[in-house]
């Protein structure tokens, strides 16, 4: 107790000492004003840099957004640059008439939920198993998993393999290959190792099985890291388009949202062609005139879910990336 107090006192003294030194420093005549000025300049430059960088990261999304909620006639004349005008949700409503878009949204949501859930379940379980020294050749099996992060056979062999397994043009191709995710397993393993071992030991002494310990102790305690990998997984699934592009040549109904967007972006023709313009409602016509609004609106639809969940989950990312930095 006393020692601690002493330390605290000491620290306070240190602080005071530092202050004094600063004062002394500042009093050293001519240096004082320069230094103050230098500090101010530094802060101005520093703040300005970060404000500009942050705006550069934010503005494009804002720009896309205001263009999608403004009246098409203003957007068509390029008048929407900073402030939305003529608020309307017509663009979003008209999106429902873009053929196949609804289905790709459903496919993307389904793969995001299913793929993430299975990946998290598998990673937590495998991450737990590889912490168990007793496992038969544990070291070998753990390396067997980890090594896969550092090599891959290449795009074409990967494709041929999927073809061989019959996973082309099938929804399973989105889910099954992603179940075992080595990086996430490392994260979970590292996290579980940081949980005091006594908790498990006492449970084993009480006769609990490995599964019980996993369900009752490990699973609840490792929720933060599971949340982290769930976010990684969900974002990855939501954004993925390579597998859709390469593995689904014939199953157009299974294309993901990003793939659809990629196709639309590359369409040189007016996007009116993808609309079911059977009716001549003015909103659909207006919408069709402005191909770029369609692109913007579809983009917003696929960005908004990420923007919505993102800020709340940011704390988890930092934790996750730090754990990943620890040696596997």
């Amino acid at each position: 107790m006393e020692e601690k107090n002493f330390e605290q006192n000491n620290m306070q003294e240190n602080k005071q000492g530092k202050l004094k030194i600063n004062v002394v420093d500042d009093k050293k005549g001519a240096g004082r004003k320069d230094r103050k000025a230098g500090d101010i300049v530094f802060y101005i430059v520093d703040y300005a840099f970060f404000i500009v960088f942050t705006l550069a990261c934010l503005f494009p999304f804002y720009y896309l957004f205001i263009n999608t909620i403004s009246a098409p006639e203003f957007v068509g004349r390029g008048e929407i640059n900073f402030i939305p005008r003529g608020f309307t949700l017509e663009n979003y409503i008209a999106l429902t008439s873009v053929s196949d878009l609804g289905r790709s949204v459903v496919v993307t949501i389904a793969r995001t939920i299913l793929g993430t859930a299975l990946m998290v379940a598998a990673s937590s379980f495998v991450g737990y198993l590889v912490t168990k020294e007793e496992m038969w050749h544990r070291k070998f099996w753990y390396r067997f998993l980890v090594i896969t992060m550092y090599f891959n056979a290449g795009l074409i062999p990967w494709y041929l393999n999927m073809l061989m397994l019959g996973l082309t043009d099938s929804f399973a191709a989105y889910i099954i290959p992603g179940i075992v995710a080595p990086y996430n397993i490392i994260l979970v393993k590292t996290y579980i190792e940081s949980i005091p071992g006594e908790l498990q030991e006492s449970a084993f002494i009480d006769g609990a099985s490995y599964m019980t310990v996993f369900r009752k102790i490990i699973w609840p305690l490792s929720k933060p890291i599971l949340a982290t990998i769930a976010i990684f997984g969900a974002v990855g699934n939501w954004n993925s388009f390579q597998d859709s592009l390469i593995l689904m040549p014939n199953a157009v109904e299974l294309h993901t949202l990003q793939h659809k967007l990629y196709v639309y972006l590359n369409q040189s023709t007016n996007l009116a062609s993808v609309m079911n313009t059977g009716g001549t409602s003015s909103s659909v016509l207006n919408f069709a005139v402005n191909g770029k609004i369609v692109k913007y609106t579809i983009s917003m639809v696929s960005i908004i879910p990420i923007l919505c969940v993102y800020p709340f989950l940011q704390n988890y990312f930092e934790e996750g990336i730090m754990l990943g930095a620890v040696k596997g």
Binding site: F53, T54, C57, F241, Q258, K295, F317
Partner: peptide, 22 residues
């Protein structure tokens, strides 16, 4: 700053391209 400068990492390259187009 930290929150908003990390957002671009979480959107796909397709969306980055839309941003570029915009």
């Amino acid at each position: 700053v930290q929150t908003f400068t990390t957002i671009p990492n979480f959107i796909s390259w397709v969306l980055v391209y839309t941003v570029a187009l915009a």
